[in-house]
């Protein structure tokens, strides 16, 4: 069997806030079709690590490479390959739910954006809200829209910070199934989670951050 491509390579990553070192000499290699779950207590550094991986935060030392390209949040190549669901997602206040997804699909050059948008919208159960402006959505619906933005576009690496947040039980179950399918189709996934069922069903490896309780 051919060796799978290394999608994400993290070497010697360090992040500290003042004297408080969050993580140091952190190494990780994620290949296509692998799903890494980051677990650990609150404040262990899961979100900080993910922010460093997507380029939203700058590590103090170490390097992050995506498909051999050094991580730079502003690089179009990185943006093309990496889909993220972390807490800083913003929305145009005057574009509806479906228009956001349509914009993303078209911006990524999808040949048949309408079909893809309809599929994803149906999957995240936001069809009745398709004409609503984001400001009127509930927190759970906003989370579903955030997840939809990751699934409506092409991607090679998916990075998510507690994707199960604010989802109902049915939503967590759907997410679990969707991520398993994504992984099996060759997508590399890194996600932080406090939901054992999601970690157990999706992750191929579990990395626990911080000191044990």
């Amino acid at each position: 069997m051919a060796k799978r491509t290394t999608v994400l390579k993290v070497t010697g990553l360090k992040r500290a806030f003042g004297k408080n070192t969050i993580f140091d000499r952190f190494n990780l290699e994620v290949r296509a079709g692998e799903a890494i779950a980051l677990t650990g207590r609150n404040g262990a550094g899961k979100s900080t690590l993910l922010r460093c991986l997507v380029g939203a935060d700058r590590p103090d030392d170490g390097s992050v490479e995506v498909l051999g390209t050094p991580m730079s949040e502003t690089s179009p190549e990185i943006r093309r390959n990496v889909a993220t669901v972390i807490d800083d997602l913003d929305f145009f206040p005057d574009l509806s739910v479906v228009e956001h997804l349509d914009l993303l699909a078209r911006a990524h050059g999808l040949e048949n954006p309408d079909r893809m948008v309809d599929e994803v919208l149906d999957e995240v159960q936001l069809v009745p809200q398709s004409g609503q402006l984001p400001g009127t959505l509930s927190s759970g619906q906003r989370r579903r829209l955030a997840l939809a933005t990751a699934f409506v576009r092409p991607r090679k690496l998916l990075i998510m910070d507690e994707p199960e947040q604010r989802l109902d039980t049915e939503g967590v179950s759907w997410l679990s199934g969707r991520l398993q399918t994504e992984r099996k189709s060759g997508l590399a996934i890194v996600f932080a989670s406090h939901e054992p069922s999601l970690v157990d069903s999706v992750a191929t490896r579990v990395v626990t951050l911080g000191a044990p309780r």
């Binding site: 939203a56 943006r79 990496v82 993220t84 911006a107």
Partner: peptide, 10 residues
């Protein structure tokens, strides 16, 4: 915020 910009390949 940079969150939305990160989703777009430009």
């Amino acid at each position: 915020t940079g969150g939305l910009a990160r989703c777009l390949p430009f």
